[in-house]
């Protein structure tokens, strides 16, 4: 069992290393490369052309063999230095520490809400399998999942913000509201986050509900549930202890992976709502070809996903005691 944890940790580290190496390679694969970026920036700043050539020249002479650059890139990353954003003229780590909590707040809240709804709804459907309620609910779930979250987001902004003006169309808080743990501030934050959260919940709850329905139906068909019924246990106890627990288990990993997936989706969502989380900055970085910021946020999102899957794997044994440790299979 200890061996499994060791292996799993090794794999998480390996994944992060691969990602970092890929980003390192990508930055160098970009047409023009960092030196061209520097030239463009100097031109924008209105530096004299002959001086620019001189600067580029000196940098070129300075440029070291690729493994030295790689080593420096790695060591600066490990010390938390993600470089400086071309576009915002600020250290990338500053931008990320400012933006990340907001994105995490929106996505984690949305994912928790949608799983809560999916679990309850899916379980109820499973009990009434075959009824009209089942048909209507399943149909509705499918219909809701056929809308991409950003399409619903656009619709929300156009209808609720522009047409009726009941919800804000942009920003994390109203301008001038200072951060504090007071009720007006929290209310303001929730008010601004309501539409983004709603568009995630509504478009993603359907498939999770169907998954929960499938799991519950499967568990309801198991022998131990029938035995529990024969023993005359109260229905409530069977529903929660016997069926509910076992049906939720397979969804646990899905929950953490979905958070990670949504962090990636935040790029589109936050652009629509002009919600200045990491997704929004990632979008700005992509549009303005701001490579340090782009790669920095990419690394942060990857780390978040790797960590959440890692935690899911490590804790799954605690949630489900029946879990088999990584079995090594015989080779053919």
């Amino acid at each position: 069992m200890n061996n499994y944890y060791l292996k799993r940790t090794g794999r998480a580290v390996l994944t992060l290393w691969v990602t970092v190496t890929v980003t390192f390679g990508l930055i160098r694969a970009i047409p023009g490369g960092p030196l061209e970026m520097l030239r463009a920036r100097l031109v924008r700043q209105g530096v004299d052309p002959s001086r620019i050539d001189a600067i580029i020249q000196s940098r070129q002479e300075e440029s070291q063999p690729i493994y030295v650059e790689y080593y420096e890139y790695m060591s600066s990353l490990l010390s938390g230095n993600l470089g400086e954003s071309f576009y915002f003229r600020e250290p990338v780590s500053n931008i990320i520490t400012d933006a990340l909590p907001w994105t995490v707040f929106v996505m984690v809240t949305a994912t928790i809400i949608l799983f809560a709804i999916a679990i309850v709804w899916g379980a109820i459907i499973a009990y009434k399998e075959g009824s009209t309620f089942d048909t209507v609910s399943s149909g509705l779930s499918i219909l809701m999942s056929s809308i991409p979250f950003y399409v619903l987001g656009i619709l929300f902004v156009v209808v609720f913000s522009y047409r009726f003006g009941v919800f804000p169309a942009r920003y994390r808080t109203s301008p001038g509201v200072t951060a504090s743990l007071s009720i007006p501030f929290v209310g303001n934050v929730l008010y601004h986050a309501a539409l983004p959260i709603a568009s995630i919940v509504i478009t993603q709850v359907g498939l999770q509900t169907l998954a929960m329905r499938g799991n519950s139906i499967q568990v309801l068909g198991e022998d131990f549930v029938r035995v529990a019924r024969l023993r005359g246990l109260p229905d409530r106890r069977i529903a929660v202890r016997y069926v509910g627990r076992n049906a939720i288990l397979p969804m646990y990993t899905g929950f953490l992976t979905l958070i990670g997936f949504n962090l990636g989706g935040s790029v589109i969502l936050e652009e629509i709502f002009t919600y200045t989380g990491i997704g929004y900055y990632m979008f700005e970085a992509l549009i303005n070809r701001d490579y340090p910021l782009m790669m920095g946020i990419f690394l942060v999102i990857t780390t978040a996903l790797v960590l959440s899957v890692y935690i899911a794997d490590l804790t799954y044994g605690l949630v489900d005691p029946r879990v088999k440790s990584g079995d090594s299979s015989e080779a053919y």
Binding site: T15, T23, G260, F261, G265, V267, M282, I301, T302, L305
Partner: peptide, 10 residues
């Protein structure tokens, strides 16, 4: 483990 959408974008 690498997030799909950001990877595609980059």
């Amino acid at each position: 483990s690498i997030p799909g959408l950001p990877l595609i974008m980059v």
